[in-house]
Design a protein around this nucleic acid. Structure first.
Length: 489
RNA sequence: GGGCCGGUAGCUUAGCUGGCAGAGCAGGGGACUCUUAAUCCCAAGGUCGGAGGUUCGAAUCCUCCCCGGCCCA
């Protein structure tokens, strides 16, 4: 029998014995707490001597013969329990010593400080509220194995305080994001996650099936086309924060499901979207970094506006020597890029090669906040053309710390042009581009009714959390990242 | 998909040029009424990710597979 088996057997035996004596911890339904652990620490002077109840998980026990100390952790922090034989009596003291690390316990006692100054409850009584049947990871080194940390995030959260902090901050970011948008007059929507036609981004979708309607559905890769329908309907500032699904690989910067914000504003242009993007990032940085400066991977970053602007094609030319403006087709682009270490394939078209050249040679250098601007229309099927430069669009992608954080444009509202763009996407699809947009006929119809000129932006929430919290990868800011399933033990 | 790295007790890990798998914490027994990584004594705990192979002998070398990480695609 394995050691864990032994420990589990021992704890099961204790549980059974308690249940036979009529003390079933799993029968408990409520425990009235007077205080949280952190309150006892912060307001000790006012609370000293008071009779207090707390509840939480037993994280450490230090026995001393006829006395014992224990650390009790609740959602706010920890407080020490001080158990003494002559306060509790033989029976209760013995029951206390019978507790195991990890047990969920409610405790009552008088608040005091030990000689060494530790805020403690001098225990008068306690109730076992849930028996922990499995041993916790080690108290000092915590849980380090990343696979176990992700597969059993609850263990990670129990023993690694800094992980709890990351998720508290992530939650504050999302709360603050909503507040910032509401303050600006944006209205929140929940648009379909299950979509008959996907769109709004270049990505492959997850496919599913609705049984009753016998209908193929896609998990959304973006909410864009629905939010713009709301602009057609007369809403002028709309946003959505929620999960998106892209059927792609998993790595340090990608999880197949991730959280994204998209916001659309009627009668606003790309400049307004830059102001909005800068404003939101500044407010989130102030929320969790206490200012506009923070460190990411050793780089000091300051998100105070205005952010630098960098034209895409000029930046690529400067970094690679290849001027994509002078390359008229896919063939020429492939030839021009042959010398670059892009690992491209024969199926890569002009736009794909431009993306790869940018990703490899420009993006890693964009440490301080930068709006990359002037994206070609060929890789921007939903963005409005610049009147003075028809093959270029009003579009930017923001980069910080070498990470892509989003995407924004002046939204294309010309239904005839939109239809042509969709047709070009269909052609690219025919040529093997699996990430090209499918034609959304109803979206074009909506545009034909008239959509006001509008700016729109998307912000990758997990990416921004990774950045502001200086997390080494995206999984550290996603509570339950996708992992390959393993046989249950 | 490719390259590199890793998987040893519940947890953190040593052992890796082949020769009885070791420690700390947790768990068990004992001592201890102010400890906080408590301390002290005792005993126990292992399918070395899995399957093959080489060898007198494999955690260690070889092959394949599984899972994870990093980088590239």
């Amino acid at each position: 029998m394995s050691e864990q088996g032994d420990q589990r057997e021992a704890r099961l035996a204790k549980l059974k014995a308690m249940q036979q004596e009529g003390r079933d911890p799993f029968a408990e339904t409520k425990y009235e707490r007077t205080h949280l652990a952190a309150e006892l620490q912060e307001h000790f002077q006012e609370l000293e001597g008071n009779n207090i109840t707390v509840a939480g998980r037993l994280m450490a026990i230090r026995q001393h013969g006829k006395s014992a100390f224990a650390d009790l952790a609740d959602g706010s922090g920890q407080v020490q329990l001080f158990a003494r034989l002559n306060e509790l009596g033989e029976e209760v003291f013995a029951r206390f010593l019978d507790l195991d690390l990890g047990d969920i316990v409610g405790a009552r006692g008088n608040l005091m400080k030990t000689r060494s100054g530790e805020v403690s409850l001098l225990l008068e009584d306690f109730t076992l509220l849930a028996k922990s049947l499995r041993p916790l990871p080690e108290k000092f080194h915590g849980l380090k194995d990343v696979e176990t940390r992700y597969r059993q995030r609850y263990l990670d959260l129990i023993v690694n305080e800094e992980v709890r902090e990351v998720f508290k901050k992530r939650a504050r970011m999302i709360t603050r994001l909503r507040r910032s948008l509401e303050e600006r007059g944006f209205v929140e929507f929940s648009t379909p996650i299950l979509q008959p036609i996907y769109g709004g981004a270049n990505a492959r979708p997850f496919t599913t099936h609705h049984n009753a309607l016998d209908m193929r559905l896609y998990m959304r890769i973006a909410p864009e086309l629905y939010l713009k329908r709301l602009l057609v309907g007369g809403f002028e500032k709309v946003y959505e924060i929620g999960p998106m699904f892209r059927n792609e690989g998993v790595d340090a910067r990608h999880n197949p499901e991730f959280t994204m914000l998209e916001a659309y504003q009627a009668y606003a242009d790309l400049e307004d979207m830059m102001d909005l993007f800068e404003g939101l990032v500044v407010e989130l940085a102030e929320e969790v970094c206490e200012g506009t400066t923070f460190t990411y991977r050793g780089n000091e970053i300051d998100v105070a506006p205005p952010w630098r602007r960098l034209p895409l094609l000029a930046a690529v030319e400067e970094a690679t020597g290849v001027d994509f403006r002078e390359l008229s087709g896919d063939e020429e682009a492939r030839a021009a890029c042959a010398e670059l270490d892009l690992g491209h394939t024969d199926a890569d078209n002009w736009g794909a090669l431009l993306d790869k050249a940018f990703d490899r040679y420009v993006q890693p250098e964009l440490i301080q906040p930068t709006f990359v601007v002037d994206y070609p229309v060929a890789i921007s099927p939903l963005a409005k053309r610049k009147p003075e430069e028809l093959d270029t669009t009003f579009r930017f992608e923001p980069f910080i710390g070498g990470e892509e954080l989003g995407n924004a444009f002046a939204e294309l509202n010309d239904p005839l042009d939109q239809r042509r763009r969709f047709e070009q996407q269909a052609a690219a699809r025919e040529a093997g581009d699996e990430e090209a947009h499918p034609l959304d006929e109803d979206f074009v119809t909506a545009l034909e009714y008239g959509m006001p000129p509008a700016g729109g932006m998307g912000l990758g929430v997990d990416r921004l959390a990774m950045l502001l919290l200086d997390a080494p990868n995206l999984r550290e800011v996603i509570a339950f990242p996708l992992l390959r399933t393993r046989e249950a033990e």
